[in-house]
């Protein structure tokens, strides 16, 4: 009796906490949606919550700002860099997690340190190299540039997840006659599906929203979505409505993607399932 009411209280409190967290997380986004629907004159009046929404801003960003062009570029770049980084990164992570060799820690650390270069410090050399290779203003240059932070991220994330998996499972498979490759593809990757999903989500988010490289390494052809924010920082002031509309439109695909794949995090195979 007592313990049951305690469970109830606990459930209630945790539900309350979840709601609070969600509301705080979502509020700025909701406010952005509101701004994107508000007529311009009301942007500076937060006391107005009820108004007849205008879709002008959305129409404007697709008609005049040609948002689809940028979205297409973003899509290609993100897809390219995420797939490549995940493949190369988890492969390397497997190596780091399972085969310790001389200097492996130093090498792993060196890889991590690459992520620490502030983009503003590396963008000029990238620009010069890209120009020499003639790939300025292409998708390739951005895919490559983003790999510099996505690969280290994938390696370290996946290494963490691989190490969580007990070695015995793998050794049993090896005894059964599987090759290392098969172990990696058939057992480790599926087992660390939650990790792979989380890593993929963050690779996508980081590349989707990257700004400095996207602006400085491209011209008119390969610009991605985040750089469109500079359209709205006008000399005469911020064009809030359109900028908020772009913010909404930019965030939506990622949110949808994340919500679609999140079930892989939840339904990730447990070890019990493998053993059965």
């Amino acid at each position: 009796m007592n313990s049951r009411s305690w469970t109830k209280v606990k459930r209630f409190l945790s539900a309350l906490a979840l709601v609070a967290v969600s509301v705080i997380a979502v509020f700025p986004f909701v406010y952005m949606v509101i701004v994107s629907l508000k007529p311009r004159v009301l942007t500076y009046d937060p006391s107005v919550w009820v108004f007849s929404p205008t879709f002008e801003n959305y129409i404007a960003i697709f008609r005049q700002r040609n948002l689809l062009h940028f979205a297409r570029n973003s899509f290609i770049v993100v897809l390219g860099t995420t797939l490549l980084s995940l493949a190369l990164g988890s492969l390397a992570a497997y190596g780091f997690a399972r085969f310790s060799f001389k200097k492996s820690e130093s090498l792993a650390f060196w890889i991590l340190s690459l992520r620490m270069l502030p983009p503003m410090a590396t963008v000029i050399p990238f620009f010069i190299v890209a120009r020499l290779l003639g790939i300025l203003d292409t998708h390739i240059v951005l895919i490559l540039a983003y790999m510099t932070f996505n690969i280290p991220f994938s390696i370290w994330m996946m290494r963490g997840f691989f190490e969580e998996i007990p070695r015995e499972i793998e050794e049993a498979a090896l005894v059964d006659g599987c090759s290392h490759w098969q172990v990696f593809l058939r057992i480790l990757l599926p087992l660390s599906a939650p990790g792979l999903t989380a890593t993929a989500i963050f690779c996508v988010i980081q590349s989707w929203n990257e700004f400095a490289f996207a602006l400085f390494l491209t011209g008119v052809n390969a610009r991605t979505l985040p750089t469109t924010v500079t359209f709205f920082l006008s000399v005469t002031g911020v064009i809030w409505g359109e900028m908020a509309a772009v913010g909404v439109v930019t965030a939506l695909p990622v949110i949808i993607f994340a919500m679609l794949v999140q079930k892989h995090m939840i339904r990730g195979l447990t070890f019990g399932a493998v053993k059965q």
Binding site: A25, N209, L225, P226, A251, M259
Partner: peptide
């Protein structure tokens, strides 16, 4: 999955737009 989506929202908005908002 709804809570999950809510939690992701802060990270999905482009940082420079986050700053402006």
């Amino acid at each position: 999955s709804l809570v999950f989506g809510c939690l992701l929202m802060p990270i999905t908005i482009t940082p420079s737009i986050v700053g402006q908002m």
